[in-house]
Amino acid sequence: MIALTRLIAKRLATASLVLIGVSMLIFAIARVIPGDPARIALGPNATDEQLAKLRAELRLDDSLPAQYAHFVSELLQGDLGISLYTNRPVTTDIAQFLPATLELVLVAGTMMVLIGLPLGMLSARYEGKWVDNLIRIVSLLGVSAPSFVWAVILMLLFAFYLPFFPIAGRISEQYAIDPVTGFLLIDTLLAGKPWAWLDAAWHIALPAFALALSGIGQAARLTRANMVETYNTPYIEMARSYGFSESRIARRYAFKPSLIPSLTIIGLDFAAMLGNAFLVEAVFAWPGLSRYGVAVILRKDLNAILGTVLVISATFLIINIIVDLLIAWLNPRIRHAEQKP
């Protein structure tokens, strides 16, 4: 337990440092790139007075360190400033758009784990047989194209030519769901509307699958490689010598030791989905953080850019920490590291 607590503390400290670095970097870059945010926000007809007033409100005439100090002091009070694009607090905007993105990424991540790992397991168990060859081809295909390409292909095939799935959006218009968590798959259940839940699941299936495909391929390939190696270890031979069935050996004795080395990379892939989600969201008109992010970047909406980047980085880091903890929890070597006096 002490080991785990220490691990969490260490990872949180690193994560905070990373966040500080990212915030400084984005803060500086956003201000250095050309274009006057006040001019963009107020349009070509604004008077010099109006411009000066907004610039003063935004503290754009202060020195960069002074601006950053101000930003940090506001941030510590949970305030990310006002978006010039929506005229609302950035925190409100993010609270509205982030859940859609997170829901997409979480569903895709779940698909990656629930499809990729079993595929890799099957592939290793039937190494060299046709099942293995088939899975290897499919997973190679999965990793060979980026997710937005898959998004376009899948949308054309299964939403456009064969209209099995909806082309855009998170849920059909006839359902009015009060946002509680912002996750439609949860809110529909909270509202007690199973049909709405099915509709939301039907909407999320294709974009999430497109987002997950390369991760599924990667997870399958990694799991296969690690498991093939595990199959050559003496402890698998010993399990066989005790007459345990091959399926039990695959599920129990070979899978778990093979999972740990794969997990780190699967975790990174999972976190990388946050970035890939931007383009997939664009293809499927998914009302997530990406549309907001692109819009605020084009408008040089400083507060909104910084807020979006920070929230995404923080989510990325949190996913990483969770994966690390999962690895530590699964691996008895780490879990029991502190037991010896």
Binding site: T233, P234, E237, M238, P257
Partner: peptide, 13 residues
């Protein structure tokens, strides 16, 4: 069968 290599013949997990 008793295997030759004791430590790596037992499952580490």
């Amino acid at each position: 069968m008793i295997f030759q290599d004791p430590t790596s013949s037992l499952n580490p997990m």
